[in-house]
Design a protein around this nucleic acid. Sequence first.
DNA 1: TTGAACAGCAACACGCACGA
DNA 2: TCGTGCGTGTTGCTGTTCAA
Length: 522
Amino acid sequence: MYMSMEILCLNSMDLQERVETELENNETLERQEEAAADGGDDAAATQTESPATEDADAPGEVAEDPLGSLEERMERADRYYDDDAPHGRSASSYRGERDEKLEAMSNTAERSISLQDYLEDQVHMLSDEEVLETMRLVQARGDDSAGMGEASVAGATEVDSNRTEESPAEGHSQQLDFSDEQVKVVRELCSSVIFNIDERGYLMYSLDEIRVSLEPAPEMILLEVALEIVQDLDPTGVGGRGLEECLILQLEKDRQDYPLEERIIREYLSELSHNRLPKIAKGLGVGIEDIKDAKELIASLNPLPGKLFGGEPPHYIKPDAIAEEVEGGYEVRVESSYTPRLRISPQYRELYRQSRKDPELKKYLKKKLDNAEWLVLAIRQRQATLQKIAQEIVNIQSGFLDHGISHLKVLKMVDVAEILGVHVSTISRGISGKHIQTSRGIYPMKFFFTGGATKSSGDVEARGSVIQRIKDFIEEEDKESPLSDVAIVEKLKEVEINISRRTVTKYREAEAIPSSRERREY
DNA sequence: TTGAACAGCAACACGCACGA
DNA sequence: TCGTGCGTGTTGCTGTTCAA
């Protein structure tokens, strides 16, 4: 049973892998479709001897086996799979109908281009003239800074100071000759800069650090040109050295002046994130309305431009069970189409029968056939157990399927275990890592097992339902005077849900709902 | 082979104190 | 007034062992 428990624990994708491994390692197992193509004929395989009786000394003396001979059991195992096809409907048509849905669920997305590749492509597309243009711009900025002297440098525009902060001296002393060689070097340095951009789209290291990491170390002004080029690429904001520069770059790209927004980003970003608008207004000496407008514009910027690209490939889930609506209820079908349909090879059965004179071969074949039989039956048992558990879950949580999260009921594994008459560990292993497809989407089976809060009436409300109530309260609150967590506790008490303020706070945080201060609209 | 019993662990819920 | 951190008790899940 340990072994069948092992099969029960596997989700459909792991089971598929396990079956493939078994097919590779056990020649007595074969796919049914392969067998059909080979013209395999089970009926031709006559029962002449069974491994269950092989050890009996006297011929014809059959050891008692309540399950019957191994071959009988093998035949049964094969029939189990034959029975798997829905009755009254050909397996092929049935499969054909759901193929589309399954394909939609399991198809793999085209590999998305990485941010680095996207940026590199844009650099390759740049003409030499565009590179030279940026070189002239950076050179002019350096000349201006040098001309203004130290006092003037301090008064230079914030953006310029931001862009040259890495190299206050080099910009003045270094000169560009605008040669083809320098253009080529700048292009190479663009690749170095791009290489040091993280998945957020931010430059991970200072230009100084990047410079010393290169062999030979390039002139700083060329590295500045490279960064300038990269920061001008799409997506806007890429190559910023932190959130502040990232946002400023996006404002600049708009080719309009946003002095208030820039000051807020530079001086009050932390206050802005905590919605402390009055403090910002007071600090900048402007009206709250202006701050609100500025906040709206800043909120429209993308703080993580790199997140639009690549990253981890999406994780596709193959549901292990599918809940389908039937007249007035839900019916669960365990999804078995990902796992090859198995059977025990008639050729090896025949070989086993003929191996009487070769004890070594016979012993070997018996072991393989036993394993094959066990696997076929264990998979069958897994399907049955999974079907029962999933059906019970769907029966209990049908309110959720009909009406949504607010109707999710409190459900413990022990409840389902009691109903099905199995041990709680069977439920735990049965749902582990498995998903069920419902009309509301694909959910981990664990999702349906949830604790909750006890109401004063003695009823229990599921955690998800309590969270939904909190969300509803917040949705309806006066935005100028949002509900504090204590106020939410009081409102929950009105509907007989008694949980502490701390619990409300935890729920709110889990749902990434801002605090009342942060929600307040001025 | 099955499931009961147990221990270990993690998550949850709570109270309290403290600081903004 | 509210958010946050910490310590503690409770609950449920999981892994392991062992007896029937």
